[in-house]
């Protein structure tokens, strides 16, 4: 599976996993992903990007359901973030989570 395809697949998995089980799914899926489908080059960045993409899809879904702009403005304001800050943090958080989990769980390459 190509790197891009793996990333997209992990994005879909993250989106589904988050919808089903909450944010804990992100690091858990990243660990499972690198353990069950090992790929020693670029696993962590692929998981990080995929997780960010997965949550971005879910945020996009929320935006289609209602005024996500107001959420970004008002909740971001509570956290003292600019209006683009909350969406950015929302995709960076799973990215770091998945990336760190994948890197930490990645099996050592065979000698």
């Amino acid at each position: 599976m190509s790197w891009a395809l793996r990333t997209v697949a992990f994005a879909a998995l993250t989106a589904a996993g988050t919808a089903a089980a909450g944010w804990w799914a992100v690091p858990a899926l990243a660990v499972l992903w690198v353990r069950t489908a090992p790929c020693y080059r670029g696993s962590a960045p692929s998981c990080a990007l995929g997780a960010a993409l997965g949550w971005a899809i879910l945020v996009g879904w929320a935006a289609a359901e209602g005024p996500a702009g107001l959420v970004a403005e008002r909740v971001g304001g509570v956290l003292q973030l600019p209006v683009w800050g909350l969406p950015l943090v929302t995709v960076l958080f799973p990215a770091f989570l998945a990336g760190a989990a994948a890197r930490g769980a990645q099996p050592a390459p065979p000698r």
């Binding site: 919808a19 909450g22 944010w23 945020v59 209602g66 959420v71 909350l86 958080f93």
Partner: peptide, 23 residues
Amino acid sequence: PLPPLGPLLDPVRGVWALAASAE
């Protein structure tokens, strides 16, 4: 002063869900 980020940012159950329940 930051609250737990996981449940807060979770796009399905977190603050983004407020958009879906706005109306």
